[in-house]
Amino acid sequence: MEIEFIAGHNLYWIISLLLLVGLYGMLAKRNLVKKLVGMNIFQTSIILFYVAIASKKKATVPVIDAALGSVDPAHYINPLPHTLMLTAIVVSVATTGVGFALLISIFRRYGTLDEDTLLKRMR
């Protein structure tokens, strides 16, 4: 029972750790680029979590294979989280681009990306 529980849940612990790393980057780092990198790590952990809950034992990729015979949902892993994450990856790349554009315009105006210096110069 215990071994089974650990074998089934250690992936969730690692993903939680990754999420905490991203949150730590967003909370504790003072440089805005590092905060953005932390946000990316956070997004990656969410994507990994979705892909992890899509998996199913003794099942293959969601492309229907005639060699497997008649279509049975037990033979294919869950296609829905894969679909959602496919769009989420591209959208996260685009929103990261928007974040960097904002950082570039902040740097052009105030000459720094350090949070404390930035708050002082904005006054």
Partner: peptide, 17 residues
Amino acid sequence: AVMAVLVAIYDDIMEGP
């Protein structure tokens, strides 16, 4: 759309002083 937007973001970031 995806190709053009990804290239456009790179070009916009590289643009400037």
